[in-house]
């Protein structure tokens, strides 16, 4: 067979399969919708996850370490320590709050002026607010920085509250797994739905397949149009899933933006990006193809002319 004839034949089969799906619009639409809905669920979860990531990136940047200096150390010593911290590659900035300034600030803002006067010593230590660089702003980076700063002489304690960051991260991680498991299960469902549709299609066209085998068709030849049907189902279902999610994102984005504005954030709900969209389409086509391949291989083999 010439290469040209081969491609012409495949193109014809591809279009023929499409024509067949179009000729039974109701049944085809049903199958495609089932695939679309099945795939849109993990896709929705994924959109949520992506947006949660984007939203929490900002929170992540927000964590600082509070370094309390030994009260016996002098203000000069405190500023020396601050200088040493600023020189570190994982530190973005260091703000110095001297004990005296802190007390004055507290006195004026709290209204406990008279009570504080009764104290002999300033109870507050000198404090350094250390902001890590962006790359060090991870739970691990924060912990490493914390233990490094704690080693420095005259540092009393270093406080780093990353528990909430850790909790958030593990929550997102669980959610990511949920997305993967859901996608896996529903993907299997898609393959089965398409496989079943193809099975019925094959049984309906049993006579035709028998005839083809009688005039010398191989199983692979008889199977080909059904594989292309599977490809079309997958493409249709994938597009439907993307459409469903885009509509959902559009419907939600206004209220999300409004909510974000209330919290002083410029956060916008992001839809499915190009890469994910492409992956969804390819995955959908592959799963449908797999489903139709399995069903067609099995059922066409079973059809023998008699």
């Amino acid at each position: 067979m010439s290469v040209e004839a081969y491609f012409t034949r495949h193109a014809q089969t591809l279009l023929g399969s499409l024509g067949r799906l179009v000729s039974t619009p109701f049944a085809s639409a049903m199958t495609i919708t089932v695939i679309g809905i099945a795939l849109s669920l993990p896709l929705y979860l994924n959109v949520f996850l992506q947006n949660a990531r984007i939203a929490t990136e900002n929170w992540n940047q927000a964590f600082d370490l509070s370094v309390y200096i030994d009260k016996k150390a002098s203000a000069t010593r405190t500023s020396l320590i601050a200088q040493q911290f600023r020189a570190r590659s994982d530190v973005a900035s260091v703000r110095v709050i001297l004990a005296a300034a802190a007390l004055a600030e507290f006195r004026s803002s709290s209204g406990f002026g008279a009570a504080l006067d009764a104290l002999r010593d300033n109870p507050l230590p000198d404090t350094l607010i250390v902001t890590p660089t962006l790359s060090a702003s991870t739970p691990e980076g924060g912990a490493a920085l914390k233990s490094a700063l704690a080693q420095v002489p005259d540092v009393e304690t270093v406080a780093l509250d990353t528990d909430w960051v850790k909790r958030l991260y593990s929550l997102l991680d669980i959610l990511r797994r949920v997305v993967l498991i859901t996608a896996g299960l529903l993907g299997l469902g898609v393959a089965l739905v398409v496989g079943n549709t193809i099975r019925l299609d094959i049984l309906n066209r049993r006579m035709e397949i028998e005839v083809m085998k009688l005039v010398g068709a191989t199983d692979a030849f008889a199977r080909r149009p059904f594989l292309y049907s599977g490809v079309w189902y997958g493409l249709g279902g994938g597009l439907m899933a993307l459409g469903l999610v885009e509509v959902g994102v559009l419907a939600l984005s206004n209220s999300v933006t409004r909510l974000a504005t209330l919290y002083g954030s410029s956060f916008h709900l992001a839809g499915v990006n190009f890469g994910t969209g492409l992956a969804v389409l390819m995955g959908s086509v592959f799963l449908s193809w797999l489903g139709s391949w399995t069903a067609a291989t099995h059922h066409i083999k079973a059809i023998e002319p008699s």
Partner: peptide, 24 residues
């Protein structure tokens, strides 16, 4: 006869040649 009813006469007759992979 065992003809495929939803294909044209020409398509029915062409079937063995399509299987053989001849050019259109």
């Amino acid at each position: 006869h065992k003809l495929i009813v939803d294909r044209s006469v020409a398509e029915n007759v062409a079937l063995p040649l399509i299987i053989a992979g001849l050019s259109q």
